[in-house]
Nucleic acid binder design. Structure first.
Lengths: 333, 333
DNA sequence: ATGAAAGCGCTAACAC
DNA sequence: GTGTTAGCGCTTTCAT
């Protein structure tokens, strides 16, 4: 592949003009004679020339590329968000690059550097495992927006939902159905959203004077189906089994449903289940899953708009979007 | 965000050396006195300096970035493949950027240009909707590998499986179970894999002297759960319903299972179902899904190795990997 | 062992 | 309307 693409010089030479004129044609400057323009365009076509983003970016300090950080693409939660980001970005002539960190700090660093080095114009982070310190430092001089998972100190603008209230509503729904022994399948409580959802869970229980039992709270390592299976398996080992489960993600909830069925029990009669996110698949499980719908597309679109505004030095404010409880078979047979 | 990161000049000045020496320290040249090295490293730290990828790439014509083209991240099929690509790339000090084309030709172009302009060193395409003509042109002077979906003319190296044989085995499995009226839920037959899998389906039927009926073949637009639901709904409208279904993706198959249940029928007794891919979720559906397992991780790892070899001007050969029929409840109750 | 300087491809300020 | 040229940040000869 030892091949060099034609550069602006060669185009200029072939067209019999200066590099400046070629550049002007490239950038649609009004001050070029139609005749000259045609000459240059012909040369460009003949040489199969494409302007180098590298040279251009180095000169302009602009790449029109946005980075989107996610911990893992395997979580369907991100799908619709990314859709929203992408559509908005394209509308503003930006492109996005998906960066999967796999929670590896070395990978984070690469992506942060891409922004520092002007290889990308800004970054939307949805990664809860991210190094907060480094991200804050980056945000001091570069454009950064948080989406879904955020930092409470408010140093970086974010778009998210009211996790505590959402969890509270989910659990209240279970209580009103007559469930008393409600388990929580939570993720790692290092993450803000996990702490907030636990808070909502506890608030609902407290409001109805149901005792909070550590035994009923299981923390998973990740958000895979298998973690949900595992969690449910542990909860079913209790002498007095829970009559309901609130899982902080649909993937966990679907795993829990699977294990409930495997153990010969039935949802929702024996154990009702509520998930969180409203991923596409939550409507395909059996029974279909009651869940909290996050406005994922809108969240992504909002994050992209905020980032682009920030890149253009406009003022941006953090935003809290609405969620919604979607009631399906896993709680209402 | 009008902030300029320190550059190599400022580091040189602060350390009291030339930019050349700073560059040498950066690149671990052996010919630098320990004393000088320390001076430079101190300056780097104090100025919080990070070398600019832009300047470096412009000079070196190398970015150590690989592009991975996928039509949509919503298809879980890609998850494990990307994992394999990523792990391999990192091992070789490359990073990957995920590019979701959403089958939009304008987006393709951007990514192709990133390669042409040395913003990325090569590209792995898994997008069946890609513009073959343009990709072939790109491949003439740049590193390109196809993964999963490929081109039969062999102009671009690929890694894939034997789709025809896999489909043949899946359908034969159904026939041996005693099923006669076997439907095919296929995707768009513009795609090579779709044509190949249909061939395998027809081959199995022909071998057992089962007539091929166009009525039993349904082509979906995409690979979502919903397309599977839709397809099954149409197939169930026939006066004499099929007794088995082979769907060319697990997502379609899971949608079909859903609709079978919704219509009051039971899998596998009334209708047996076989999927394709062995995505994580295929083991979570109810009933669990019989499917063709593709070696997704290995496929990704192989594609990455091939691409890196190609970038380093080594000879690369196309590879066909093995698949496997995984028998679960949807055919064996 | 280190420095000076050319050059990667491009844009924009300035000159004509 | 078009050309000349400096400079974006870096690496790498070629001197010393």
């Amino acid at each position: 592949m030892g091949f060099r693409m034609a550069n602006i010089q060669e185009v200029a030479k072939k067209a019999g003009v200066s590099v400046a004129t070629v550049s002007r044609v490239l950038n649609h400057h009004p001050s070029v004679t139609p005749k000259t323009r045609v000459k240059v365009e012909t040369a460009i076509r003949e040489l199969n020339y494409e302007p180098s983003m590298l040279g251009r970016n180095l000169r302009n300090s602009e790449s029109r590329l946005l980075l989107v950080l996610i911990p893992s693409i395997s979580n369907p939660f991100y799908t619709e968000i990314i859709n929203g980001i992408q559509t908005t970005a394209i509308k503003h002539r930006y492109n996005i690059l998906l960066c999967e960190t796999n929670s590896d700090p070395r990978r984070e660093n690469i992506f942060f550097n891409m922004v520092k080095n002007k290889l990308a114009d800004g970054i939307i982070s949805m990664d809860p495992t991210i190094n907060r310190q480094k991200l804050t430092e980056l945000a001091e001089h570069h454009s950064v927006i948080l989406c879904s998972e955020y930092m409470e100190d408010g140093s970086i603008p974010y778009v998210t939902i009211d996790n505590e209230r959402a969890a509270y509503q989910a659990v209240k729904h279970l209580i009103i159905l007559g469930k008393k022994k409600i388990a929580l399948i939570n993720s790692d409580e290092r993450f803000l959203y996990a702490r907030q959802r636990r808070k909502g869970y506890e608030k609902a229980l407290r409001e109805f004077e149901i005792p909070i039992s550590e035994e009923l709270i299981y923390n998973t390592h990740e958000l895979n189906f298998h973690d949900g299976v595992q969690a449910m398996r542990m909860l079913l080992r209790m002498e007095e089994k829970p009559s309901a489960v609130f899982a902080v993600s649909d993937t966990l909830a679907i795993g829990a449903l699977k294990e409930i069925k495997a153990s010969g029990l039935k949802a929702p009669d024996d154990i009702a289940v509520v998930g969180f996110d409203n991923i596409h698949f939550s409507n395909m499980s059996n029974p279909t899953l009651t869940t909290i719908a996050q406005p994922m597309y809108k969240m992504g679109a909002t994050a992209a708009t905020m980032l682009i505004n920030q890149i253009q030095s406009k003022q941006v404010e953090s935003i809290l979007l609405d969620h919604e409880l979607i009631i399906r078979e896993s709680t209402m047979g």
